[in-house]
Design a protein around this nucleic acid. Structure first.
Lengths: 162, 162
DNA sequence: AAGTTCGTGCAATTTAAACTGTACGTATAA
DNA sequence: TTATACGTACAGTTTAAATTGCACGAACTT
């Protein structure tokens, strides 16, 4: 058979599942790594994952760290085992949706504030080349964009991932 | 001044706003292009946008087409003007959120079906190397993933972008 | 009909991202 | 202490994506 030591079925599921995970903003490798770890019954070492995905150990080390920062995987301690062991966070929906939610709310809020600052400051500057009509339209658009961000924030705050 | 002919303020807003648009799955150039067009009071030609963003006409042509396919911009006809004119769809929230919603629902549903097929078929195959325990756990995980997709679908269907 | 202008397909190039091998610091084992 | 194993920083390489110049077909102008 091919290089992969894992069962074909697991590989199939991993590839399919990872497509969804990518939607949450993860790269292909990150997504597959999570999927593979999630499907595994046991905690896995870097070497095992590198071997299973056909990637270098360095690559796995980097990517697993990204996943850990997102709280999607956890390092696990096991007596007598020197190597680092990892496991996937098992509460799929809650884990993904809440971090997704938080990400959107944060960015929407930050951007809204940033745009409001621009809105407040630019009128002071007399050194811009816009006509009065252009300024009127620009202000209007800017307000619409600010509202847009507020709406995003509201929508995601009301989102209840139960 | 610099190369950009547009007012600094517009460039500022464009850059800030485009960061949010990127969240919806657009590339940086697509996002900036939309933002710039949205901020413009008038319909714009390819040349004007290429000039404003400092990109080649080919690049604008390609990217504006992507935006058009996403229904984010529209080609506009104006009597006596030979060049193609474009304008941004002005209903920000509705436009972005509904297409966002549809995208997630589609993918979640498709993936759920795909995983259910795997689930149905793999049991027939006797040619896999898994132990009975491994099979039990795999089935369990697979079901959780399928449920996960169903939950995503439900969540986005209940999402009301008004 | 002849000459312009426009948008875009395509190939070549540039730019950026992903990936890996080597080397080193730290920790464990002997 | 010495030796072995582990994880990761870093630089160099490979791979993929973005960008652009050129060229061609279609549409318009004179």
């Amino acid at each position: 058979m091919g290089k992969l030591q894992t069962n074909d079925i697991i590989v199939n599921i991993m590839i399919e599942f990872s497509k969804t995970i990518e939607l949450f903003g993860l790269t292909t490798v990150e997504a597959r790594l999570f999927a593979y770890l999630y499907l595994s019954e046991e905690d896995l070492t870097l070497d095992e994952m590198a071997d299973a995905l056909g990637k270098s150990k360095t690559s796995i080390s980097t990517n697993i760290r990204s996943l850990a920062e997102l709280n999607l995987v956890t390092r696990v301690w096991k007596k007598g085992v020197r190597k680092d062991l990892y496991q996937a966070n098992s509460q799929l929906f809650k884990t993904f949706m809440t971090s997704f939610q938080r990400k959107w709310i944060d960015i929407a809020r930050r951007q809204k504030i940033s745009l409001e600052e621009i809105n407040n400051h630019y009128k002071d500057k007399s050194s811009n080349e816009l006509t009065l009509e252009e300024q009127t339209i620009l202000t209007e658009r800017l307000n619409e964009i600010i509202i847009f961000h507020a709406q995003i924030e509201t929508l995601f705050k009301n989102m209840k991932p139960n």
